[in-house]
Design a protein around this nucleic acid. Structure first.
Lengths: 333, 333
DNA sequence: CTGTTAGCGCTTTCAA
DNA sequence: TTGAAAGCGCTAACAG
């Protein structure tokens, strides 16, 4: 019978009290060298592993980080999860993963479930203000990508990202431009669009004589939406020569649509995405996109959690334009 | 000061003993209706949430499922994680996620870390036999996709999958065929290849007079390997007219390579992938592939964990060929 | 049917 | 510097 070995067994084996064992475990300096060695030998001998539950119960805190995202299958969130997990585990924390499926009810349930596990903190990509607002209030929460009233947000400066995309297209000489936005209910989507539109307006004011056609569509962030909106955009009488999207997934769906209508990228159509997911540099042609520094975002989010800073303090990182092969000067040939 | 409310507070508020509160929490039938109501009211009133730590410590078991995969960024594992998480949370469990990065040392560390949290069970996609074999032995572990000595494996019949791919290509009339395998160190990769090669040999024996060119290459499962191996394959003097790969990611990389050398799919080249990741049905052309029933795999793995069946009992599911637009009869035009 | 109590494994006073 | 003991929140065995 393989009994689990506790601190008591170690104590008896080393001929000391449990308190002493606990002290060597905690690397407490006030323990006699000789005894310390004896205890450590006993630990080795018995293969003792501290029981997290006992410790957590006593200390009233765990080494768990809760991570609630809409969908781990989305490459952007997968990347976020990976970085969070890597960083967390290197600090001795484990991460509890939960998907909200962009469903407020599911999200509420998931957050509640994770909270019940008393995590050290929660990293959250919220889908709904209302349902979880007060659930997490006062709960050491950091929000990523999307804001939540009263909680620290770490993300990218979306307006700036939109601005960069528009600026890139404009400077390439495009004058028939479309913007494919995300769901208008999401702040991220609105901000990116505003940044994009802002640069367009700015250009129009600076060059009032130059003709400039601009339109906007919106839908989900996923591949499918990119394809559908792309078809709508490209099958018009005078389709745009350049399209910026609110996500790389949309951009990749859009590439599909472009191929379907026989358009070659970047010759007939320039595309710029958003996020820089791993796939962006692997599609054909490689996608020009606005990069979000996800590793950095994860790092800051985790730091905020672990340092329990009392006051929420948003952190907006700089997005950067990554030029690859899906954009080209117009007229391009 | 917001004190955490315990079972004691509820007991006092309801005018009963803690044991009674515990009983109504456990839905124990032996509790008086009237008292039950009073307790439930007190619970509502105080917003009492049972403390998982206390319960787990007492019961010596948690509601945690450990999930250790090579890389959450890989769409196949992301999909697996999603299903595991959905199923788990619907049963009241939470999942602890860890990435091993295909590194035996990291894997060992991660497994150890998760085991220290006393999970109800471990779902594992192992990278290395040796380093974790006895770490998890006797630990209620289920292995997915890749085997581990002495542990239950749930996955797909890889030989059958390879066989299906070869059979499909052969029956389409292809006679210059290549197989792009995964890392030969992995059983999955070897089995798929064996199944594929098996069907090829079978065909040759049945039709000894028919000319049939066949070759094999191998590399990693990822996009990049697919592209590199694809280039090697396609830039030969007499390139194959059909290629089957050991993963959809390879297949998608291969599509890139095909485009680079000016080959049109499926007109000049047929491709069949493996896994059926979400992206497979979104690339252009949509990818014909061997589908792994991942939802089913996740379901069975979790069931095996939760029912603590003592003896390991492998479970091989049937893969199925999903015909889409990347394969075509040869000669095809 | 309900109250009382021991104890899960651990940390941390308090004494010695 | 170390030992003894209390107690974190909970469940279950036992007594009533």
């Amino acid at each position: 019978m393989l009994l689990t070995v506790t601190i008591k067994h170690v104590a008896k084996a080393a001929g000391v009290a449990v308190g002493t064992v606990s002290r060597v475990l905690a690397k407490n300096k006030t323990v006699n060298e000789e005894i310390r060695i004896r205890v450590e030998e006993a630990i080795q001998e018995l293969g003792y592993q501290p029981n997290t539950l006992g410790r957590s119960l006593r200390l009233n805190k765990t080494d768990l980080i809760g991570l609630v995202i809409p969908d781990i299958t989305n490459p952007f969130f997968a990347e976020l999860a990976k970085h969070v997990e890597m960083l967390a585990s290197s600090e001795g924390y484990s991460v509890l993963l939960a998907n909200s499926h962009d469903d407020p009810a599911a999200e509420q349930q998931q957050v509640q479930a994770l909270l019940g596990r008393l995590p050290r903190g929660l990293i959250l990509v919220p889908v709904s203000e209302s349902t979880i607002g007060d659930l997490v209030s006062g709960k050491n929460t950091v929000t990523v990508d999307r804001p939540l009233q009263g909680q620290t947000l770490v993300g990218v400066d979306n307006r700036r990202g939109g601005y960069l995309a528009a600026d890139h297209l404009l400077s390439l000489g495009h004058r028939r431009i479309a913007y494919m936005s995300g769901p208008p209910t999401l702040d991220v989507a609105r901000e990116r669009r505003e940044g994009f539109v802002g640069r367009i307006r700015e250009f129009q004011q600076q060059h009032p004589s130059q003709p400039l056609a601009f339109q906007t569509v919106d839908g989900n962030f996923d591949y499918r939406a990119g394809e559908e909106l792309g078809n709508r955009l490209l099958r018009q009488e005078h389709p745009p020569t350049a399209i910026a999207t609110a996500s790389d997934q949309q951009a990749i769906g859009l590439m599909r649509a472009a191929a379907d209508v026989g358009l070659s990228i970047p010759n007939d159509l320039s595309i710029v995405g958003f996020d820089d997911i791993p796939l962006a540099s692997l599609v054909l042609p490689r996608l020009t996109t606005i990069r979000q520094p996800l590793a950095e975002i994860a790092r800051i989010a985790l730091k905020a959690i672990l340092s329990r800073s009392s006051t929420p303090h948003d952190c907006k990182l700089e997005p950067v334009l990554v030029e690859r092969n899906s954009t080209r000067a117009w007229p391009g040939r």
